[in-house]
Nucleic acid binder design. Sequence first.
DNA 1: TCTGTAATTTGCGAAATCGCAAAGTACTTT
DNA 2: AAAGTACTTTGCGATTTCGCAAATTACAGA
Lengths: 239, 239
Amino acid sequence: MSPEDSFPIQNEAISLMQKDAELAQLLPFEELSQDQAEDILSQASVRRVPANATYFNEGDSAKNFYLLLDGVLRVVQVTEQGEQVVILHVVPGKMFGIAKAFENDTYHATARAASEGVALSWPSEVWDEFIAKYPGFLQATRSAVGERVEEMQEKIVEMATLQVEQRIAHAILRLVRQTGKETEQGIEIDFPLTRQDISEMTGTTLHSVSRYMSKWQKDGIVNSGRRRVVVCRPQDLPV
Amino acid sequence: MSPEDSFPIQNEAISLMQKDAELAQLLPFEELSQDQAEDILSQASVRRVPANATYFNEGDSAKNFYLLLDGVLRVVQVTEQGEQVVILHVVPGKMFGIAKAFENDTYHATARAASEGVALSWPSEVWDEFIAKYPGFLQATRSAVGERVEEMQEKIVEMATLQVEQRIAHAILRLVRQTGKETEQGIEIDFPLTRQDISEMTGTTLHSVSRYMSKWQKDGIVNSGRRRVVVCRPQDLPV
DNA sequence: TCTGTAATTTGCGAAATCGCAAAGTACTTT
DNA sequence: AAAGTACTTTGCGATTTCGCAAATTACAGA
């Protein structure tokens, strides 16, 4: 984290959180008193990251853990050959960079902003303090880990059993569930997403993604454009 | 768990643990006093599971968590089409069935014995008690979760970027690392393992596994037989 | 408006992998 | 010893998917 893009918590973050009552529900702070919430927030910094920049990189010392307030980010790994693989996406209200929950002292993947993002961050040293002081925090970290394991498990099963077309469909449907916004034409995935991005989520090539999406476009199942995916008839995507 | 194959901890388990000093190092009990270890052990049951039987099934109420003492087990998921997918293997010294660490009240995968196994089990209710009383326990659970996430992440990257031949090689090498025993011919994977099993680990067919392993056999890289895999020259397996 | 860049589409041949079928082999049970 | 079962091997055609190339389109910046 470079010093110039991280600040002690200010009105900005508090207003961001108050702005969205629904978001506040998702925070690990839900079962806390006003005082406790203020204690936790007082130790947080706000971090704003432009699209395609990283919150941290694989191998970095795990100095902080984060809570995403706005934007979407990808957790990615890069192979020795330089191929990117998207492990999962993080949406607002979710914690990330929680190396402490894995007894790690470095991050084991890179967190890259898919769209401009805002996150709260805490120094990893307060992790154990929060666990000890706030029972809801332990529970929140467990849930975060559990969701993550669940999602990775699903992904392994999909990659092991489905063909490319179905894997692409599943990946799109997952993003629809996680970030979908209603529009007149259908449900739109709420951040810029290229064919290449989708191929990195599904272990295929951008060409194959394009071929299948063109077919779905013809069939009126999706309505996608440059860096944009709208799903009109989710139920008609293949299994 | 059926009542007839689970017993309060007896000399059997204690002797099993004392028998193998190395194993004792791996236990989450390492930093405990004799008294504390006895407290923990006194609440455990011993469970013996024959090869191909399950410790628990996906969807079961998560009544217990486990520590594997002997044998190897597979964590598997079954698709709607009945295809088995092996998520990972558990070897002696590792905890499993730790739904509590994910804030789940049911198991989200099936644990099936690859070879006859012995495990300690505790009722899930004591999880939080152990966490509170024994700091080393929290650390051990974090490490267990961290290793698991790490392994799943690796698997996702492999499935996304490698061809079938390389995926098979990686799967075999991982088992060699986890369970390999030195023999005169090379390193043997220490439990019965069929071509079908390997295909369920790598998202391919038993036929493809057989074809590649036959090739490696011809090249003297492996020496495998019925339900048996010995790797002679691990460094010559493809990437 | 023009120009350059990034993203997408599409065609076509090559390669990888599967699916089916059949035969061979090792182990178990009777 | 014989029979049965589970596991493995192998061949071959069908299918999926890739890789490369080229053309097209959308958007951003000058």
